[in-house]
Write a protein that binds this DNA or RNA. Sequence first.
DNA 1: CTTTTTAGTTAAGAAGGCTTAACTTTATAC
DNA 2: GTATAAAGTTAAGCCTTCTTAACTAAAAAG
Lengths: 148, 148
Amino acid sequence: MTKPDQFTQAVRAWVDISAQRSMRGWSHHAKASGLSMPQFSILMQMYYRGTCGLSEISERFEITSAAASQHVDNLVQAGLIERTEDPHDRRAKNIRLSAKGKSMIEKGIGERYRWIDQLAEGLSEKERERTAEALVVLTEAARKLDQS
Amino acid sequence: MTKPDQFTQAVRAWVDISAQRSMRGWSHHAKASGLSMPQFSILMQMYYRGTCGLSEISERFEITSAAASQHVDNLVQAGLIERTEDPHDRRAKNIRLSAKGKSMIEKGIGERYRWIDQLAEGLSEKERERTAEALVVLTEAARKLDQS
DNA sequence: CTTTTTAGTTAAGAAGGCTTAACTTTATAC
DNA sequence: GTATAAAGTTAAGCCTTCTTAACTAAAAAG
């Protein structure tokens, strides 16, 4: 990498501003629903990745299994996730979002992305089309990075 | 807005994947440098917005001025920011990054955006040009949202 | 079949972040 | 010029998160 060229510059600027925007409504919703950030993050992971074990949570968030267990326990008591025994390995637990947890997260996502609708209103039809195309290209490329 | 159309969909997907990517190296760097997330976020704000008063910090992060004062104090003692009296209003303090704080954040930013360079490698010259243009348009529009 | 590993839980305690409340100092309003 | 408001600090205490350590139960290894 020699210097921040035009592409890098453009991506950085957008990532910055979009991340900031998204985080705003995000932590708002977390607070409003009485959840702490870690709790909310765990629910978020459940939403995108589906059922998992406790160990996966502790790995992903780089906390001890004790900490993960405590978080999960709180969320279970709040009725937001379900914890059942894994039939194939009775030491392990299967953890998944409850219906209540799911709808909660979906509301949070709506909150997180409301600004995108406002953004759309500030653009012409043509601009929306062209930027959407560009983002699809970028998203594709980013996904490939994840797999490598 | 009636339903998530193509534009919204594309923006969401990209925001998701880019935010995730950026956050990864991000909290890593924060931990590695012995700073908590709130502390790191404050430094980040200083970096992008320059000098500010204490009240701006408490507003931006939605914490009391007491909490902001404590954070700032820690950062001053760590040599990462400087706190001086505002000559125009002697009640107020001017808070700005120190050289040490600046280089620290810049290292963090490098960490945060390393993946963008990898992303660039996966695209053709033409794609880079066109996506960069689109992102400039989006960034502009998002900035306008902030001002309204 | 015994030993060791793995998954998870529980309890106790340390560390950090945030709040309220009381206070100082300076600016603004009347 | 006095009263009020604003910027910031300090101290005390609450709450959350996280960790370590001791534990149970089940699977895997030998």
